[in-house]
Design a protein around this nucleic acid. Structure first.
Lengths: 348, 348
DNA sequence: CTGAAAGCGCTAACAC
DNA sequence: GTGTTAGCGCTTTCAG
């Protein structure tokens, strides 16, 4: 008899109250302040709730309490496993703490960052975890800050904002040192769009620093604005006579393409050419050759971000820049790096 | 003078109404039925909204209208790029249609599926896009169905549910045929936990069918319950004297580990051993050797799921099994497969 | 074309 | 320990 398309409307707190012969307030207390309800009524109410599969309506609760138990998440893209892994960490940590998440992806477009912030705010998220293109100039970040809406940056590093990040510049500087130790002199960096990510910039400046420290002149940076064409861009350079003996890629995805480019140019990695990545996506470990890279704890970055944010939330305050966390990243000596080919390091 | 920690409370519709010298109802109409408001007032109200950065409070709207403009998403994990890519597709499609998403990951645990459904329902999601372990037995799915809450399955295939999927069994059957054409006779399938995923089961049965059609006896299936130990499990088999000449892996992640296992056993892919995957994660294309695999349109699976769901929502109904979509998946002839080694196909 | 008023489901004072 | 009540911000009849 029932109309097939009719949504079964969820029972409300009144229905529970009626069945349990108590007031709605008591039912509410069972959920929010169970200790203020006598054990008997509490259990009875719980029984009825379970029986009917009742859960308090989150919108009503949010409207009333001004707290949503939802965290907004803004990421560039989930097509890069770095952010997917991070979101996985965020999802697990939030679930464990009783929060839900509402993510948005920006595809590295700053307008999307702002749009995402606005949308998330309209949902009354209790806080936001985000990766912005550039923490220094991000309007989205400014909006959040001036609204005093709690947030924590992930991956971005900035002295005035609460961040969970790694010291990418230092790591790259050290990595260059490793390459130099291996006899490499002609080292080129391969970067995505530098202006789309302050991380790429930091890594690049760490690279320059490392080269400078080693007294080396860096080869021209290879820019690969689009991942689709990365292989040809890199291959072009690899086909030049005085090609680099090592390629320092600003992330793992680019490194994997560089690996491919080397293969297409008939170069063997690592004997003819060394290649390094950055990010530590979990797949990198299982590649052949296993990627030499700077491993970031992507999953943990998300988790720490959540924990930092939720801790502040529980204290009724916003996270501060002074709470920023720098996570350790480590050099993973994979198989994509080796001694520089002898022909190229005759000068040592 | 202002207390630093005080949240800047977002302006409400009343504030806008007051400033515009109109009633709240009119402001509401500007957002919901702009055509019913005179152009003059409309523009004036809009101007004030922009100036103050006003956006209607989503919780209040949801509470009032019983529609949230939010879709729930339930996925096993984002650590597998398949689902990350799919979620990326979902995120883009929903944003384009004016919806937000609230995702939850289950780590393949069925209890988490139920918990996720319950949580999402409490938020009043308008619909749910989900991947379950087993569509046939999923309690989460039953809950959704009996509550008449609109949902669309993605990846899962089931005659009684609306699904966006590919014919994994057929694809694998064809793939076996390709391998047989290449002279392979000793072919083994490598699977994850079969009981955790109906897709893996379908692929496995497609494999068996393909072997049967070719008049071949399948080698014992290699089970790799945990991805961490996959490499050793596969390596163990590869070290046996009458090892398979081809490994059909139930997904790309396993295939990449199998590639690694082959390398560790001193086998060359594809000359000594052929390996195939399934999923078409975007990285597979750039591996060396490029992965031979069945490519699913992961991004599009998500997008189609959203479109199917939203279309139904707009018609005020739930998606039906008859609307299920089977997307084309295609065999990608990478570089990880070749003619069977001659020693092993002397019988041809 | 615009306004007044009720109420979505819940929680938190405040009474008792 | 429990109930009564007001109201969170919005939309939507219903009047005018």
């Amino acid at each position: 008899m029932e109309k097939d398309s009719a949504r079964v409307d969820p029972v409300s707190i009144l229905e529970i109250a009626r069945r349990a012969h108590v007031s709605p307030a008591t039912v509410s207390r069972v959920f929010n302040r169970p200790e203020k309800v006598s054990a008997a009524t509490r259990e009875q109410v719980r029984a009825i709730c379970n029986e009917l599969g009742y859960r308090p309506n989150a919108s009503a609760r949010t409207l009333r309490t001004q707290r949503s138990q939802v965290l907004g998440v803004i990421l560039p893209t989930l097509s890069n496993p770095v952010f997917a892994e991070c979101l996985q960490g965020i999802a697990q940590a939030t679930a464990a703490l009783g929060f839900s998440i509402m993510p948005a992806t920006t595809d590295y477009r700053v307008e999307s960052e702002q749009e995402a912030v606005a949308t998330l705010q309209s949902f009354g998220v209790d806080g936001t975890i985000l990766v912005v293109s550039d923490a220094e100039t991000s309007v989205a970040l400014q909006t959040l800050a001036q609204r005093r809406s709690p947030y924590v940056l992930v991956y971005n590093r900035h002295p005035f904002h609460p961040c969970v990040s790694v010291a990418g510049d230092t790591a790259l500087c050290d990595l260059v040192h490793e390459l130099v130790q291996l006899g490499h002199r002609r080292i080129a960096m391969v970067c995505g769009k530098l202006d789309a990510s302050d991380r790429a910039q930091q890594r690049h400046s760490g690279f320059m620093q490392g080269m400078h420290d080693a007294g080396l002149l860096p080869e021209p940076t290879i820019q690969v604005p689009f991942i689709e064409t990365a292989i040809e861009e890199v291959a072009r350079v690899l086909r030049t006579p005085y090609r680099p003996t090592a390629l320092v890629c600003s992330n793992d995805l680019i490194a994997i393409r560089a690996l491919r480019a080397a293969h297409e140019c008939g170069l063997r990695v690592p004997s003819d050419l060394s290649i390094t990545g950055f990010d530590g996506i979990s797949l990198g470990r299982d590649l052949t050759p296993a990627l030499t890279t700077i491993v970031q704890p992507n999953h943990d970055m998300g988790r720490k971000g959540v924990e930092l944010l939720v801790r502040a939330l529980r204290d009724g305050r916003q996270p501060t820049a002074s709470e920023s966390i720098t996570l350790a990243c480590h050099f993973h000596r994979g198989e994509s790096c080796a001694q520089a080919p002898s022909a190229h390091c005759a000068d040592t």
